[in-house]
Design a protein around this nucleic acid. Structure first.
Lengths: 254, 254
DNA sequence: GCCGCTGTAA
DNA sequence: TTACAGCGGC
């Protein structure tokens, strides 16, 4: 028996928007501590990891560990049927192959019940170790999204180079080349506008812009994004969900 | 000789927007009392009825009954060439196969003349009797539109069930099922936000969501929509035009 | 100035 | 069919 209450449906909508273009079907794993999801994209190039701690929910009841396989597009369609201010209740009974979403409008005048067929999906929760990256860049998420979008108009890959003073995003292609330098600036009015670099060792690594642009779908989840790099490790692009979890994308350098 | 003046071009634009995706060509029938139009969609599944009383116009001159056949897409394109605040004059001379639209900007600095070729279309004005429906639901038009759009993300048909307390819209499809319950609530601050049910007999009928979504194009015409149902009658979905007329859609249950 | 929607391109 | 971009409305 799984039962969740969430006052802000918009949070769940954003989470699904951020990953549904990346993987079509995935298992949500529920345990006593919260909800998690891990999935590779269909080309097995990148990995997405979602974590939503139990505290994210007004009610979180999960009697035993359970995996719920869903088509994320269909789930997203159903969540889209709820207003952003609707409260949402999620229920899945043991031994039932459906999950139920109940949406209540703020006035409770309109109550919607959506039932979705579950899927059987093979997947294991991998234990992902905390990686020791050489360079960690924290910057405004919209700025990062804009840079990736702009550079993808020029080339297919982005070279991310980090020094103690700044982070540079560059690309080279037939039509020309571009590089965008963002200086560290911690001393800014609003902390979410800061660009902060933690550096053990300078790095310069190349990544697929197509995938970076898929990652930036998570921008609405957080004002800031954290990009962690090391030459012999996958990069991690992380969007924190207000102390309640995160969406992380892992991708090897090309 | 037909001559009409209308201060608010936006009204006519909305009327055309509401029916042009439904029928491509139709006759406007003008008589002393006003303007009316009746047309089936091309698949003969549903009927649209437009009535604009003479009082809707600042000037309404119609010397004798006249039918004016027009391609609604072309007419709509021309109306789109006028600003929402423009005044519009419409003229059709007897024995002429064109109709003239004159748009005047509020300052009268800009005057536009559009002339459109008329069409010869076979059509009769049917006498449509006032039907005695078992259930009449009046609700906010945007809410109805939202429900139809949401449910069409899940399935192809909507089952509308009305009891004395509430109206339920539901659908079933491969990916799951959904039902949305709207309680009656007459005691609301603004009357246009009320949901009011008049019931002689509970009904539960199934309709094409594709067509319902075509009907809801008329949403900008009115804050409220009235849905009239009876098991052996076509449903009527009506959008009133501020005491000056209405757009009604008729469709048999599937 | 921001959000939503429509139309176009991949 | 799905994702991106440009335009219009609030």
């Amino acid at each position: 028996m799984l039962e969740l209450h969430l006052v802000q449906n918009s949070l769940l909508k954003k989470v699904l928007e951020s990953i549904k273009d990346f993987v079509t079907d995935a298992n949500f794993h529920y345990s006593a501590t919260g909800c998690s999801l891990q999935a590779m994209d269909s080309s097995h190039v990148a990995l997405v990891v979602l974590l939503l701690r139990a505290e994210a929910f007004e009610l979180y009841r999960c009697d035993r560990n359970i995996s719920v396989g869903m088509n994320l597009n269909n789930m997203s369609k159903m969540l889209e049927c709820a207003g952003n201010d609707d409260a949402i209740r999620i229920k899945a009974d043991d031994g039932n192959d459906t999950i139920t979403f109940v949406f209540e409008s703020p006035t409770q005048r309109k109550v919607s019940n959506f039932e979705m067929r579950l899927m059987d999906i093979d997947s294991e929760l991998l234990g992902i170790p905390d990686l020791e990256h050489h360079a960690i860049v924290k910057m405004p998420s919209v700025e990062f999204a804009r840079i990736c979008k702009d550079l993808s108009n020029i080339g297919d890959t982005v070279i991310i180079s980090v020094t103690r003073e700044d982070v540079t995003f560059s690309t080279i292609d037939d039509i020309g080349s571009a590089n965008i330098v963002c200086s560290q600036n911690a001393a800014v009015a609003k902390p979410e506008e800061a660009t902060v670099i933690e550096l053990n060792e300078p790095v310069s690594l190349t990544f697929s812009l197509r995938y970076m642009n898929l990652f930036t779908k998570a921008t609405p989840l957080s004002n800031t994004v954290t990009i962690s790099l090391a030459s012999e490790l996958p990069a991690v692009v992380e969007y924190k969900i207000a102390e309640m979890g995160h969406v992380r994308f892992y991708m090897d350098p090309s």
